[in-house]
Design a protein around this nucleic acid. Structure first.
Lengths: 330, 330
DNA sequence: ATCATATATGGTATCGATACCATATAAACG
DNA sequence: CGTTTATATGGTATCGATACCATATATGAT
């Protein structure tokens, strides 16, 4: 592995000059510059990132923390972040927190040790008070998930509205018994809390009191969706429609519902959340809340780059539009 | 950010002794060891990985190259690799090559510069002759995709068998006109080549000559699947069954087929490949070839760890079982 | 008691790159 | 034409950690 010294020797110049060429500094003659470039090419030289990082340089690497990459929502989000990053010369390190506090902290530590220039968090496991100190080591940005107490830029969607328009749609379809599948009902703040409020608000406006027995907490997977349908079927008094927290839960519900001979949407109307590719492959096609994942990723990465270039980016919250996509499951 | 020097100062010992404690070297008294540990804790000290890497230490980081993380096949594969890695104290860096030769090389360069200890490649863009030199810088392992000329361990599935049993199944169902959607038909070697041979072999055994007009090359996405159905519908002489290269193509075909009033499997039988969660959510549920993604990821990471610990791992190919999952689309 | 060996600790060079200071030449100005 | 200013290049300390050598003490063997 050639080093900067080898390049210097081959080109007959000093390490310093070579370094200048690498970093595009001023005051290097065309002639010498070409000599250096030629030598670099000949040796197939790449600067050692560890050495650069150690020296306190930018790493041109940013980290993205996701709970689970197998969740399509997050893989799409990462993808769009990565596209923007690559265009701007940044590498992306993807971390799975697996919803583990320790793992999350391990990753944040990379910021402290200058392994990454900045971090985009798409989920938050630890209390903000624990995460906050890391912002001293480099920019952190929240994307998708958020906390009110956070003192960093946030790129997010209007989750309140998402739930509100979804439930509203069900009400307009004539439903009065509307169930709800959510990730966390008792969240103090953030995504789930806002969704819960949207759900409740829509019902309240229609003069309906949410029925606790139709509210299912901690639902995430396809399997969870199946279980929910089983629970519903075992009830005397059943909901006629369900608003869910993701297309996957909705998909799981559909499988089980059809298995049990329920007709969708007649016996049970279902709304998803995300508008993943899956949504149009289900039968009937899934009515869902479209989250502009791409835009969110793009905005997040662009903002992070701004933060890296100019440390004086305003701490603000960017809220992107969210919309209802009506298909055949409602 | 505290350094090893700060720890040394606080504990009243030398950097050397602190380093010994960090790396669990022999010849450190319990007493001093505790002093150091206490100081490390007090300062919330983490060794700087850049400095360690620069010094030529192990990085306890491995890289995984995937073509696209939004492809569920790869996100599941990465997930299982990551689980094993984390259990063994390794970090995983995920790279998207986006099927770009340059990007792939950029990532392989991280091996040369000792940013990662080893690399798992789940796809290959460049010629092996170009990749081969990188093996001198650290272990590389192929997982999923493969080339015959490769001189490294390979963890793969019997793709030939996968296609063979799929087509065989269609033949048993009485189909004689069997189409084929593949990624790359003209592949010199590797996954697609083997699948193609499996397809042809099954047909040949049944005395059927593959019909070129029913073979669709370069198919990958849901959208591709839709297009294939459109093409089929425009034909005078149509296939009655299609073997596809992924559940997504199959899903896309189903959407369009239903859209056009085709009944599945009666008017058109479809087989997927992968057995993703999606497969059971389609209606009718998708008959598909199950790839043991988890096992493949686990085996790959375990083997890579062996290579890292003991440089004398045999260069061999691990072939994992693949099976047909019959559902309702055939 | 003497010398070899095991245990315990510290000092310094080094990994590869860049920042900063020093210096040399060329151009610009009054 | 002398002096300032822009351009061009090199030398050396430094980032944080570890390897290696040196040294000091404790332990054991003869």
């Amino acid at each position: 592995m050639p080093t900067i010294y080898d390049v210097a020797k081959l080109s007959g110049l000093s390490k310093t000059t070579v370094s200048r060429v690498i970093n595009n500094h001023s005051y290097v003659s065309e002639e010498k510059k070409n000599l250096v470039l030629k030598a670099m090419k000949e040796l197939n030289y790449t600067p050692n990132p560890s050495a650069r990082k150690l020296r306190g340089q930018v790493t041109t690497t940013i980290g993205v923390i996701v709970p689970r990459i197998v969740n399509p929502f997050f893989s799409y989000l990462v993808d769009s972040i990565e596209q923007v990053a690559y265009k701007n010369g940044y590498h992306v390190l993807i971390f799975q927190s697996n919803e583990d506090k320790e793992k999350e902290l391990a990753f944040l530590n990379l910021l402290k040790t200058k392994q990454v220039d900045g971090i985009i968090m798409t989920s938050i496991e630890n209390d903000w008070s624990i995460i906050e100190p890391f912002t001293e080591s480099g920019p952190i940005l929240l994307c998708n998930e958020y906390v009110n107490s956070a003192s960093v830029p946030i790129v997010r969607l209007d989750q309140y509205k998402g739930a509100y328009i979804g439930v509203k749609h069900l009400l307009e379809k004539g439903h009065r018994k509307i169930g709800y599948c959510t990730g966390g009902l008792f969240a103090e703040e953030g995504k789930d809390k806002d969704r819960n409020q949207g759900y409740q608000k829509a019902l309240q406006e229609a003069g309906i009191e949410p029925d606790p027995k139709w509210i299912f907490v901690n639902q995430h997977s396809i399997e969870d969706g199946k279980q929910v349908v089983k629970k519903i079927l075992s009830m005397e008094d059943r909901p006629t429609a369900i608003f869910t927290g993701s297309d996957e839960i909705a998909g799981g519900m559909m499988i089980e519902a059809k298995e049990c001979g329920l007709k969708i949407p007649n016996d049970l109307a279902i709304i998803g959340f995300d508008d993943q590719p899956l949504a149009q492959m289900l039968d009937p096609k899934l009515t869902t809340i479209r989250q502009p994942i791409d835009q969110m990723g793009i905005k997040a990465m662009e903002t992070l780059i701004d933060m890296l270039n100019d440390s004086e980016v305003k701490v603000e919250t960017f809220e992107l539009p969210i919309e209802l996509v009506v298909r055949s499951s409602t």
